[in-house]
């Protein structure tokens, strides 16, 4: 037990720093809630104008909430090692003799908490301001699907951080390439059934698409575990593949970085 706690210490330390840092300047919450809310409002008003069923309000709120996590994976976790390298922190991490994925785990946990607070604020705005309605019976399956989605997404983040480690500033392009297209494909504001079949097939390979669909089914339609086991299994399998793969790639990239000097030489 003490060995597990010891191994988790760097993750706790990194999460602690992240949460503490965010809490120091509380205005972050305002900006990071206000901006997504504006986009969310515009889509809700569009649906309203089209006389779409009321369920679409909840649909958009869930999409906005979960998309926050995707952007957190990309911008808060994916490129973290690049920034840590630029500030000299990466050297300190490497010298600490701890597995670097533990630091990323800490980053992920801190990010999840901060993003969770943001998403909760958006949920409340969705309910109180826009009148979104959710089915309380779907809370447990929705939570399960949501947690598995996070596990799969942050495992992907582990892989992205390796790419940023190798490609440095150019890695930011990865975020740009993945940000909006994934948001488009996963159906942030609309059901992916509107896509042609081929695009639907591609979209259904994304953990975010599965997660969004599962959470919406549970919270909006009240579907239970009996209807969501495919979502849960899909996300579980994705996590089981992506997590070890992410750790393996990260370790390989750290070794490659030690070999070619990219870990420490800022010009590389």
């Amino acid at each position: 037990m003490s060995r597990i706690l010891d191994a988790l210490r760097p993750a706790y330390a990194r999460a602690w720093v992240r949460i503490r840092g965010n809490m120091r300047v509380k205005t972050w919450l305002l900006w990071e809630v206000v901006l997504p809310t504006i986009f969310m409002a515009s889509v809700i008003y569009a649906y309203h104008n089209l006389d779409a069923p009321r369920i679409f309000i909840g649909f958009v709120v869930v999409g906005t909430m979960m998309m926050n996590f995707w952007f957190n994976v990309l911008w808060g976790m994916g490129n973290v090692l690049y920034w840590e390298k630029e500030t000299g922190n990466l050297e300190v991490y490497l010298l600490s003799n701890r597995p670097i994925y533990m630091l990323l785990l800490g980053m992920a946990l801190g990010g999840m908490l901060n993003t969770g607070i943001r998403s909760l604020a958006i949920l409340l705005i969705g309910i109180l301001v826009f009148g979104a309605e959710f089915n309380a019976a779907g809370l447990l399956p929705a939570t399960l699907v949501f947690l598995l989605t996070l596990a799969a997404l942050y495992s992907l983040g582990l892989m992205f951080s390796s790419l940023h480690l190798v490609y440095g500033r150019k890695g930011i392009r990865i975020n740009e390439v993945l940000g909006d297209p994934i948001s488009f494909l996963s159906g942030q504001y609309y059901p992916i059934s509107v896509f042609p079949t081929l695009l639907q097939a591609v979209a259904s390979l994304l953990p975010l698409t599965i997660g969004l669909d599962g959470v919406r089914r549970a919270l909006l339609l009240g579907e239970g575990m009996e209807n969501l086991y495919i979502h849960l299994a899909g996300l579980g399998i994705m996590t089981l593949i992506l997590l070890p793969l992410g750790i393996w790639i990260l370790n390989r990239m750290v070794e490659k970085g030690r070999r070619d000097g990219r870990l420490i030489m800022r010009w590389l």
């Binding site: 840092g21 120091r24 500030t87 000299g88 701890r98």
Partner: peptide, 22 residues
């Protein structure tokens, strides 16, 4: 070099690094 997080205090930064060391 200035490793650490500018928004945190000296103490917080050092506690963080100490935790990294186990």
């Amino acid at each position: 070099e200035r490793p650490g997080y500018g928004i945190l205090t000296t103490r917080e930064n050092l506690i963080y690094y100490a935790m990294l060391y186990g």
